[in-house]
């Protein structure tokens, strides 16, 4: 399966298992989503379970919260993460706080799925990575898969989760792993180990990172698109890097991070999102707090630049294998 099929399949499994799961969003019903992630669901489960919505993100999330308060498990689609901000009030002040402010009387078990990230010439409003505006909100969980196997398992776990989950899908990975070389042919998921997606129900737990490659010289913390970029950078640089795909940012697998950095003594953090106040800043602080006496070099961040995501300058902006490889070498060589 590619990532789209895996996500579609996760919906299907969840809807089959639980009548309270409802799916909606702009073009998510009859048409099956602009990325086909909900294709066929309306036909199979009926328009009461999977339906189109008005183009109104706050209304989509606001009604979803009300449905969750009633007892349903809404799985909501926001067409692009760049367009989630009209719903930010409902997400940050309502969904995230429902349990806390009502002292547990009302809860909000919703999942908000949204395609994220760049590398597709999407320009300013089809490329952003807004995870940090959600990781900063207490009460939310933030998940970002990097392959079809995890996408299905994490989405099923998110739908079952009793708390609101922001589920970010790197659209650049929908059809295949992308290492950052736009001039090479797309490989597709067919021959990739993580493209083998089991039929039926399984979950990948939130809060558990995955060690993509074991290594001893430097720990690389990454997620989403950057997992594949980091793998390529490692291979090209020859640095014996330990690559960790965080998979969920909240909850965060601190144990895995801590164990790895204490072993390697060095750390590179990679994300597409802009640098200042990005999630990398938080990761850096945590590593500094917990692994200070094990560190042999300053922690380095490789991120998108502090600019809006440009169009023509896509590959100057996108943190590709060259930039990541240079950082790996620099950190390993640092005395």
């Amino acid at each position: 399966m590619n990532m789209i099929e895996a996500i579609r399949d996760a919906h299907d499994v969840a809807m089959e298992r639980d009548d309270d799961v409802v799916v909606f969003g702009e073009d998510a019903g009859y048409f099956g989503g602009v990325f086909r992630c909900t294709a066929g669901l309306q036909e199979k489960y009926g328009a009461n379970r999977c339906f189109d919505s008005p183009i109104a993100e706050s209304g989509i999330v606001g009604t979803g919260i009300g449905m969750a308060a009633y007892g349903l498990k809404p799985v909501i689609e926001i067409q692009f993460a760049d367009y989630i901000t009209p719903a930010y009030d409902q997400i940050s002040q309502e969904a995230a706080r429902m349990r806390y402010r009502s002292n547990g009387e009302f809860t909000c078990p919703i999942v908000i799925r949204t395609p994220t990230g760049g590398g597709i010439y999407g320009g300013q409003t089809h490329s952003q990575s807004p995870e940090a505006i959600f990781t900063h909100v207490c009460g939310l969980k933030v998940v970002i898969p990097s392959n079809p196997y995890d996408a299905k398992g994490l989405l099923l776990a998110s739908i079952e989760d009793p708390d609101p989950v922001i589920f970010l899908e790197p659209k650049r990975l929908y059809n295949g792993p992308f290492e950052g070389y736009h001039d090479r042919a797309l490989k597709g998921w067919k021959d990739h180990e993580d493209g083998k997606v089991p039929e039926g129900y399984y979950t990948v737990p939130l809060g558990k990172a995955k060690t993509v490659r074991a290594g001893k010289d430097v720990t690389v913390l990454c997620y989403g698109n950057m997992v594949h970029v980091c793998e390529a950078a490692q291979a090209e640089s020859g640095v014996d890097a330990e690559i960790i795909d965080l998979r969920s940012l909240i909850p965060l697998d601190l144990e895995a991070i801590e164990a790895s950095v204490k072993k390697t003594g060095r750390c590179v953090i990679v994300h597409e999102a802009t640098k200042t106040s990005g999630f990398g800043g938080e990761l850096m602080s945590l590593v500094q707090e917990r692994c200070f006496y094990h560190l042999e070099a300053p922690i380095v961040r490789v991120t998108g630049w502090d600019t809006p995501y440009p169009h023509a300058q896509e590959w100057t902006y996108f943190p590709g294998p060259k930039r990541v490889g240079d950082a790996l070498k620099k950190v390993v060589e640092a005395k």
Partner: peptide
């Protein structure tokens, strides 16, 4: 909750679409 009184938020207007969603859920079920 047991008295049919939804948790009040300081953020104005947010409960309006939430009420609609609650009603949609009731209709869906």
């Amino acid at each position: 909750k047991d008295n049919g009184f939804f948790t009040i938020s300081g953020n104005l207007g947010t409960q309006w679409p939430q009420a609609v969603g609650w009603a949609m859920a009731s209709a869906i079920k």
